Simulated assay, not measured.
Amino acid sequence: MQTGYYAATGGMVAQFNRMDTIASNLANANTTGYKRDQLITGDFARLYKTAQSELPIQNQTEEAAQYFNRALSRVPQITDSFTDHSLGSMQRTDNTFDMALAKEGQFFAVNTPQGVRLTRDGTFTINDEGKLVNKQGHEVLSADYFQTKTAIKFTAQDSIITIDKNGLISSNVPDSLQMSANKKLLVVEPQNLRALKKEGENLYIPESSDPLTPLAESGSVMQGFVEKSNVNAVNEMIALVEANRLVGMYQKAMDSQMNDLNRDAIEKLARKG
């Protein structure tokens, strides 16, 4: 068995996966509120050491646990992935319904046909019914939504609308400058960020067991701003070039294993014959 060939193949597959992730990050470099994804590359040896006491070998004997497949010990492979939830830069828009969250790990909530989803993209607008919705037309939820099931709505007379740092919405009394409280945005802080799953359209699926309790004082809502992506295009391009070069190196290693070494072996066998 040419173990070097299989090691190079494993390394190439890992780099292909890495390139896919980098390409996705670059494609969303200008997506409001997008959070970059990152892969973790490990090898069989590390995976083995973390699970060697639970190997599915009869009797779980000490002698059996000494088994170690050195032929596969250093094959690179993707062992984990995670989303980097660090803050992106804040961009001022001065649009009434543009909102950003200035604290890491907090999210707005929207109601989709598939259920409640979370998002960092605060580019909201008003639909024909006067409801506050996101770019996909999904209803933006209020802090009391799970109790009242009512939407955040505005009328044509609401000419002045302000939103404070905790998400409390106020609008003017008709034909006056006096402000009255409206709804409050549902801003949540999931218990486990690693449990969030990206669904597409800049939405996250929360963990089913998470109660999505509204924050009484989030202190992070910024009206008239949007949060830009936390993707650094320069760093991603450097990583893409690195991954591409590694693919080329693995390809050369595979070619050497299959052609040069095989040809050398055949010539030696022919001479002996």
Results as ranks from 00 to 15, higher is better:
Met1Pro: 05
Thr3Pro: 00
Met12Thr: 01
Gln15Asn: 09
Phe16His: 11
Asn17Phe: 09
Met19Trp: 00
Met19Val: 08
Thr21Ile: 12
Ala27Leu: 02
Ala29Arg: 09
Ala29His: 04
Ala29Gln: 14
Tyr34Glu: 05
Lys35Asn: 08
Gln38Cys: 03
Thr41Pro: 04
Phe44Cys: 03
Ala45Trp: 08
Ala45Tyr: 11
Arg46Cys: 01
Tyr48Asn: 14
Thr50His: 09
Thr50Lys: 14
Gln52Pro: 02
Leu55Ala: 11
Pro56Leu: 09
Gln58Tyr: 12
Ala64Trp: 08
Gln66Val: 06
Phe68Leu: 13
Arg70Thr: 12
Val75Asn: 07
Pro76Gln: 01
Gln77Leu: 15
Asp80Cys: 04
Thr96Gly: 01
Asp98Ile: 01
Leu101His: 08
Ala102Arg: 09
Gln106Lys: 09
Phe107Arg: 05
Phe107Ala: 03
Ala109Arg: 00
Asn111Ala: 13
Arg117Ser: 01
Gly122Trp: 07
Gly122Lys: 08
Gly130Trp: 05
Lys131Asn: 15
Val133Asn: 02
Gln147Trp: 06
Gln147His: 06
Lys149Asp: 10
Phe154Thr: 07
Phe154Pro: 06
Gln157Arg: 06
Asp158His: 12
Ser159Ala: 09
Ile163Pro: 01
Asn166Val: 11
Gly167His: 04
Ile169Phe: 03
Ser170Gly: 02
Ser170Ala: 11
Asn172Arg: 05
Val173Pro: 01
Gln178Asp: 11
Met179Asp: 06
Ser180Ile: 12
Ala181Trp: 03
Asn182Met: 13
Lys184Tyr: 04
Val188Arg: 01
Glu189Pro: 08
Glu189Ile: 02
Glu189Asn: 15
Lys198Ser: 14
Glu199Lys: 11
Leu203Ala: 03
Tyr204Trp: 15
Pro211Gly: 05
Thr213Phe: 09
Thr213Cys: 07
Pro214His: 07
Leu215His: 02
Leu215Gly: 01
Ser218Cys: 10
Gly219Ser: 06
Gln223Asn: 06
Gly224Leu: 11
Phe225Gly: 03
Val226Asn: 06
Asn232Met: 05
Met237Pro: 02
Ala239Asp: 15
Asn244Pro: 02
Asn244Leu: 12
Lys252Ser: 07
Asp255Val: 05
Asp255Gln: 15
Ser256Cys: 01
Asp260Phe: 10
Arg263Ala: 13
Lys268Ala: 11
Ala270Lys: 13
Arg271Met: 11
Lys272Ala: 13
Lys272Ile: 15
Gly273Lys: 14
